[in-house]
Computed example of a mutant assay.
Amino acid sequence: MTTTLKHSLGTQTEPGTLRMERTLPAPIDRVWTYLVDPEKRRTWLAGGTMAQAVGGVFELRFQHTELSGEVAPERYAAYRKTHLQNSRVLRIEAPTLLVISWGSEREDASEVTFELSPQGEHATRLVLTHRRLPDRKETLSVSSGWHAHLDVLDDVLHGRQPQGFWTHLEAAEAAYATHIR
């Protein structure tokens, strides 16, 4: 079965930098809570903890099977168990900007920027930029991962049951394989 992507692919703005844009069906304050409230963030990305100030370290607790109920295929078997990751808040300006380290709290870690802007009363434009990715393999991995996670966020905000996280991730990975340099 072939899965069609629901949203446009992100763009590689330069080597090691990915940019994705989505219009989400919720006011900016509601979308913001899905970034910073660990219980809400758990529904589309990862639970854990959240630091509220620049420099604060927090834990991302990935439980991918809980996102849509779909068990990871064999090549992602390691993600059938909880995966923990520490990150650091680099900038926070509620409710429009969150910048975090990714995969490490070290200064040389890659970083993710979430920029939110209202689109009328009932929608929010999200621009996600992931910078300092070390190579094509990592860029491909995070591109497909962010794409699938943002699909889940879109479903959650629409009040729909997220469908097939891993199925969507594999479809996104195939699309990005021809899209990423």
Rank of each mutant, 00 (worst) to 15 (best):
P134C: 10
A51W: 01
Y79V: 05
A53M: 05
P162F: 05
R19A: 02
S110H: 00
A51S: 09
W102P: 03
T124E: 06
L157I: 07
T4F: 07
T139Q: 05
R19T: 09
I92H: 08
A109S: 12
F58E: 08
A172N: 02
W166Y: 04
P118L: 07
Y34G: 05
R106V: 11
T17R: 13
G164T: 11
F62L: 08
R42S: 15
T124W: 13
W166D: 03
T43G: 00
H122D: 13
R125Q: 13
A171P: 00
T13F: 01
T2V: 13
T129D: 05
D155H: 02
R88M: 03
W44R: 01
Q12L: 02
T167M: 01
V156Q: 05
V152L: 11
D154S: 15
A174N: 04
P95L: 09
Q52K: 09
A78Y: 10
T2E: 05
E59D: 14
L5V: 08
T17H: 07
V127Q: 05
L133N: 10
S117M: 14
E121L: 10
A177N: 03
S101F: 02
G120E: 06
T33V: 04
G47V: 12
Y34Q: 05
S141C: 10
R30M: 08
R41F: 01
W44C: 07
V54L: 03
E170Y: 08
E66L: 14
G55F: 01
F58N: 03
V57D: 13
G10D: 13
A72C: 08
F165K: 07
H168N: 08
R30V: 14
V57F: 03
T82N: 10
W32P: 03
G103R: 06
L18T: 01
